[in-house]
Structures are given as structure tokens and as C-alpha cells.
Amino acid sequence: MREFDSYPTPEARERELADLVAKASATIPGTELIEYGRSVEHRPLHVVRVPSPAAGAVPRVLVCANTHGPEFIGNRVCVGMLAKLIEDPPPPLRRLHERAELWLAPCLNPDGYARTHALDGVGSLARLRHNHRGVDLNRNWPLPAGARRLPLPGAGSSTPGDATYRGPAPLSEPETAALDQLLTSQKFHASANLHSFMGTLFPPRVRTRADSLAYARLCEALRQAQPHTRYLRIASRVFDTFTGEQEDHQHHTHGCWSVCVECFSFRASLAQSFARRVPLFWRFNPRDPRPWVDNDVPAVAAFLLAALDLPPPVSPRASRTDP
């Protein structure tokens, strides 16, 4: 990806993360880089655990990114949380670390990242978005108990080759299966899943008014912490549907407050790509990720921090498979 100097190669991304963990461990004892699984092409799936200085047991929170191959800006925001925690954390991130153990998984789809990089960001959405087996990892999660998948655009396709192909079965992919094991073992209290590029917030599809109001407050805490671009929350208990996305599974199966954050705004994306022959990559990522890292790091921390003041969502720890 020769022209994309603001975004690291797959190898440089891994070195950067290891270097940041080594630097963090010097000031935050116990910080560690954990391999929680392997991708289809046997690349490591890494998560960083950053212990809290608080005494005794503390809740755990999780930030994930890059479940879709070309969405590099989410990776930059997730890595930026660790970098800013080491250097000069914004107040929401500092307070979050004081109260919770922070887990960071910057690249859930390293095969898709590597393919996007190798192709210089050129290709169809399906070509760049999927894992190595052509599966949209954010449609590969089980539906909540009693839910059904409606035949709507984007709701998860059963046709191989489609941009939202959900795979042969829920958790059929090593990337989602490994992450689900991590969710089960660590029992995270809250999570933010970083995507791009619509500048929007998608909480889970919830069934109660209480949960809907809770997510409205959590998303507003996120928005208020964004210094220059505030994202729009999109949610409806009436018109939303279950699609096999990660935040639905986390909320309903794992009892975890969760949100999808579409980093980078539609307006900014349009400004840099409209009427120009540019790779698909530039629809999803800003030329300079730094302003968006500065915008979104404190906001993600504010969402997670606000969630700590709530009890875990009450949901049955059960899910079903598609027929």
C-alpha cells in the first residue's frame, strides 16, 4: 500500500503493537499482549490487557476493531487508546483506566487487513471486507434466543460471494469462534466495536424500553466527549432487525453493554472521494487518521466509563443457530 503512509503494513502493525505493549508495561505493570486465537491463514489474533491501578476486583471493558478488512481507521483508534494511555490520556480515558481493566483487540480480521494492503485498497467490498474464506465476520455471530433473520439488505446473506455472506453456520470462522471464547472467559462489562465510515453509532437491537433508554444515555455520553465531530445514533426498537452482528451477541448472550462505532464521517468521506477515481479504501479511511483518533478515543472511553455506572444488561446466556 505504497500511497497509504498513514496506515501501517501488516508487519509494521504487529511491531507497533508489541512496542506499545513493552512501553506500557514499564509504567503499568502487568500489561501484556495475549494471543487468543489464529485466523484462517494462521495469523495471530491479539488482544492487549491493561490492568487497572484500582485495588481489588474491577470490571473489564473491551475495544475491538477491524473486523472488516478495509476499515483501518478503527484499528488506528483502538491502537490510539493504548498510545494515549501511555503518553497523556484524555480525562475520560484516564478515569476509565482508574476504574476498569482495559482490553484492546485492534485487528479482528488480520487476513482481510493483509489482503486490503496487498491490493492497495483496490477491489470490491466483498473482496476486501471478508475473512480468507469469504465470510463477513460481523454477520457470523449467533442470533439471540428467539430471534429470526429478516430478508433485508445488509441483514446477512446466505449466498457465498455476497458482501454480507454470513458463512455456513454461526461462529463457523476461527476469528469469531476465538473471540467468543474470549468473551465467555472474561465476562466484559462493556464493549465498543470500531468500524467505518458513516460517523454513526449503532447500539444493539434491544427488546425493552429500559435498555433502549440506557443506550440512548450511553451514546450521548460518547457524543458529548467528541471534540470536533459528533456521531449520529441510529436505533429503533420497531424497525431494527437482528443481523448476526457482534454487538447484538455481546448484549443478549454475554450480558455486555456494547455499541458499534462507525469512525470517520460520511461527509468527510464524500469530500475526499466524490467524483474521484480512488480505491474503495478511501471511502472508509481518512487520509490523515490523527484528527479522528483524537476525536474518537475520548468518546469511546466515555461510553465505557458511563457503562460502569450501570448494572450488566439482564439477558439469557443462550443463542440459536440459523435454520
Rank of each mutant, 00 (worst) to 15 (best):
W141A: 14
A114Q: 12
D211E: 10
P203C: 11
D136T: 01
V135A: 03
A221C: 08
L201G: 04
A145H: 12
F202Y: 14
L171W: 01
G154C: 08
A210H: 09
P204K: 02
L194N: 15
A163R: 12
G134V: 11
S191Y: 08
L183H: 14
C219A: 12
A145L: 13
L182F: 07
G154A: 13
R209P: 11
P153Y: 15
A190M: 04
H195A: 08
D211W: 04
D136F: 00
F197C: 14
L179H: 09
L150H: 03
G199E: 07
A126G: 09
R205L: 10
N131Q: 12
S196H: 08
S191E: 13
A169Y: 00
P204H: 07
A163S: 06
L143E: 10
L143N: 09
A210L: 05
R139P: 01
L179Q: 10
R149C: 02
L182Y: 08
P144W: 00
V206K: 05
T200I: 08
S191D: 09
R127Y: 06
A147P: 12
G112N: 08
L150K: 11
R139W: 03
A210G: 05
K187Q: 09
H130M: 09
A177R: 09
A216Q: 09
A216E: 13
E173M: 06
S158I: 10
R166E: 01
R217N: 07
S191W: 10
T208D: 04
E220D: 14
G199Q: 07
A178V: 02
L213P: 03
N131L: 11
G154D: 06
R129H: 05
A214L: 04
P153H: 15
N140W: 06
D120R: 06
S185K: 11
L152Y: 12
T176N: 02
H117F: 15
G134S: 12
A114Y: 11
Y165Q: 01
L182V: 14
D180W: 08
P153S: 15
P170C: 00
M198R: 14
Y215E: 01
V206Q: 05
H189V: 14
R166A: 10
G161N: 05
A177N: 01
A177M: 02
P144H: 00
D211F: 04
L125M: 15
R129P: 04
L218Q: 13
W141I: 08
P204L: 04
R148P: 00
L137C: 02
P204N: 08
G134M: 13
K187T: 06
S157E: 09
G146F: 00
P168W: 00
S191L: 10
L194W: 07
P144M: 00
R217S: 08
R207G: 13
R127P: 05
T200P: 01
N140V: 06
P142K: 04
P160T: 02
L183W: 15
V122W: 06
T116K: 13
Y113P: 09
T164S: 15
P151G: 15
D211A: 10
